[in-house]
Write a protein that binds this DNA or RNA. Sequence first.
DNA 1: TGCTTTTAGTTAGATATCGATCTATATGGT
DNA 2: ACCATATAGATCGATATCTAACTAAAAGCA
Lengths: 148, 148
Amino acid sequence: MTDDDPLAFEVFNEIGIINQLTTAAFAAVLPKGMTIAQFTVLNHFVRLELEAQSPAKLASAFQITRPTMTSTLARMEKAGLVTIKADPADGRGKLVSLTAGGREMRTECLRCLAGPMAEAQAVLPEAVLKQLLPLLRDVREKLDRLRD
Amino acid sequence: MTDDDPLAFEVFNEIGIINQLTTAAFAAVLPKGMTIAQFTVLNHFVRLELEAQSPAKLASAFQITRPTMTSTLARMEKAGLVTIKADPADGRGKLVSLTAGGREMRTECLRCLAGPMAEAQAVLPEAVLKQLLPLLRDVREKLDRLRD
DNA sequence: TGCTTTTAGTTAGATATCGATCTATATGGT
DNA sequence: ACCATATAGATCGATATCTAACTAAAAGCA
């Protein structure tokens, strides 16, 4: 807003607002009971063609803490979107798998997201997005490396 | 991650991750009990040199809903960071003001944030940030307009 | 004036998120 | 083999966020 802020601060501020606007818009159109967090998990399994994955790996893939993933997975299991079994190879671990219902829900979510997505793409010039993507990837990777 | 995603989707995804990384890093260093949301309110008052502001205007400034602002302000009032009075000019409204304690807390937060901020700026080339800022502002404004 | 609509704020209920802490199991070093 | 450390999950308590629904007051309009 003002000029006396560090550049990075203003960048992070814009990013925060954009994140809020997009997640709110997307969440609003998802099927009743579905959330972005849950959709993200469904999408992860399908896109990477995973059979089974541990909660810890899922948490780390999305940069969230294990307790967060525990609670999200519990809701997803309750909703019949995933199954959670003990890991036979590791007494501490669990293995999460997608159910058929989870797969269908992911497809349904994609259908629901298409509208807002198209709206966004309609107002955002492709040139801007193409410029943004590599810059954001660079920032994300550098911040990610900073994390440890 | 994969190539078959719409460009905008990937951009929003990167933005989401960056947001998560930065807010987590900043939140971690704030004084006990302080949060990003509360700091943002403190900062807003000081930067814009506001005497008093209604909760509704604050909510709209940060793109959050009024219920969210209600709860954040309630915690801030309890912590002695702001005062909340009835608006004499509008029977429905309230007026929020910073207390001396709130002002001090904002300064203290800035001190705490300086470290992580410097770390971030150290790894993020200024050139990249300078390129990013106008692009992000453009995207934010367009998405914001889409909201209504 | 009086009714309708809009706006401000709150309350309730839900999810996501975190840090701190606990239990159980695995791993590593002596 | 044994003990110390590290890792996987779960539990707890807190905050931020949303939508839906409610109350009260202002604004608009006939």
